[in-house]
Amino acid sequence: MDAAELKGKFAEAFGYDEGIRIFFAPGRVNFIGEHTDYNGGYVLPAALTFGTWAAASTREDGIYRFRSTNFDTKVESDVSEMIYKKEDDWANYPKGVLRELIQLAGPENSKHYHGADILYHGNIPNGAGLSSSASIELVTGLALSKLAGIDIPMIELVKLAQRAENHFVGVNCGIMDQFAVGMGKEGQAMALKCDTLEYDYMPVKIDGYKLVITNTNKQRGLADSKYNVRRRECEQGLEMIKTVIPHVKSLGDVSFEVWEKVRHVIKDPVIGRRVEHVIMENERVLAAMRVLERNDLNEFGALMIQKHESLRDLYEVTGAELDTLFDEASKVEGCIGTCMTGAGFGGCTVSLVKDDEVDTFKERVAEKYTAKTGLVPTFYICEIGDGATEKLKEEKQSRF
């Protein structure tokens, strides 16, 4: 589908074809730094070149109509009635963003949010752990604020989108997904400290290799998973550490050297494993930043492998499907790094594979994975792209 086709779908959905603007927000992949974001640590994500497009046009009657080419559910809400409804399914994400936009605008400017029709089209696999929810949130925030004539800095849209997911949808996520989707740059990963939002762009030069994302095709929803349980376990671990180091604000501020001195205060072995993963994962992000600076892809791949092993053994969020993909990918010559990406409990792995080994990689991993799990994986050859943006008329439109 290209921009003209998306506008045609918009016309089919809403009955008119005037005043349509096109917006885009990518999905994201996280190389290193899993489950460190809500612990105030470092992450190393990158935006992708696939994501969510939105065709949108203003209304004057205070009604917002949400449609999607990917889902059958159609939702219509008055601007004064943005409340969570289970039956609204995916549309709760844009509704939550709109509510946050109105609250941010305040009484003086909220009148500018006087209705819109918006049609979404995404090519991020739903539930794959590539941030389809953050993609929908950021494309909605950008589109509806622009239609209202209100310019909001991207970093504020990022924070707003996180609030919508936390408070409206009910997923207690950190800010990494929204940040990567909103602030991404082509060819670069982002080294982000999630509690302070200090960040730097790190060029990812993978000449001779491809980024291969492999979808387990095991569906999972974050709100229904053990994601929130893991967060509570980390909070409990931090409180235990605070009994001996009261000034520590987050696990992301605890170095490995300090952890070695205070680990004895955590008597619960499960909580101890969770905390150890977060602290060691934080160290891996810092190491990955140094590795990217000297363009050492083999060492970067080794850090990806260590990441997956920690998520499997200490944080316990991988599961049979992700572990099978990891095991089989690791056996293929030419794959120098592989790990789960996203929250886990299903979703995807990301692998660094030599150009001339990609076909062999896909064939062997698929054969072994299907034999062991009964599921058929999907492979995506990916590039690192830009963050959320409006697709202006003069821009060359690619197919999506």
Results as ranks from 00 to 15, higher is better:
D2V: 01
A4Q: 12
A4P: 02
K7A: 02
K7H: 00
K9D: 04
A11C: 10
G15E: 13
D17L: 05
E18V: 02
E18W: 00
I20Y: 04
R21K: 07
R28I: 11
G33P: 15
G40N: 05
Y42I: 03
V43R: 13
T49F: 09
T52L: 07
W53N: 01
A55G: 10
T58S: 13
E60V: 04
E60Q: 14
D61P: 07
R67D: 10
N70A: 02
F71G: 07
T73P: 06
E76Y: 08
M82W: 09
Y84M: 06
E87D: 14
E87R: 11
D88G: 03
D89T: 11
W90S: 15
Y93H: 12
K95A: 13
G96H: 06
R99S: 15
E100Q: 14
L101W: 15
L104N: 05
L104P: 02
Y113R: 06
A116H: 03
Y120P: 07
G127P: 06
G127T: 11
G127F: 08
S131F: 09
S131K: 05
A134F: 13
T140W: 08
G141D: 09
A143V: 02
A143Y: 04
A148Q: 03
M154Q: 03
E156P: 01
L157S: 08
Q162G: 02
V171S: 14
N172E: 10
G174W: 05
D177G: 08
Q178F: 00
F179T: 05
M190N: 11
A191Q: 13
T196Q: 08
L197P: 06
E198Q: 11
Y199G: 03
M202G: 04
I213E: 07
T214H: 01
T214R: 07
R220S: 10
G221D: 14
A223L: 06
A223S: 14
D224F: 14
D224R: 13
D224P: 05
R230V: 03
R231Y: 01
R231V: 09
E233W: 00
E239R: 14
K242F: 15
H247T: 15
H247F: 12
W259N: 13
D268S: 15
I271D: 06
R273N: 14
V275F: 08
V278P: 07
E283V: 06
R284E: 15
V285T: 13
L286G: 13
A287Y: 08
A288E: 15
N295K: 10
N298F: 15
N298R: 11
F300H: 07
L303V: 09
I305H: 15
Q306T: 05
E309Y: 09
E309N: 10
E309A: 09
L311W: 01
R312T: 06
D313E: 03
E316N: 06
V317F: 02
T318E: 01
T318H: 00
G319F: 00
T324S: 10
D327W: 00
G334E: 01
I336L: 12
G337P: 06
T338A: 03
T338R: 00
M340S: 02
T341D: 09
A343D: 02
C348A: 00
T349W: 11
T349R: 13
L352C: 05
L352Y: 11
D356N: 08
T360H: 03
A366M: 11
Y369L: 03
A371V: 00
V376L: 09
V376Y: 01
V376F: 02
F379A: 04
I381L: 12
G387C: 14
A388V: 11
T389N: 11
K391I: 13
L392W: 12
L392R: 14
K393R: 08
E395T: 08
F400V: 10
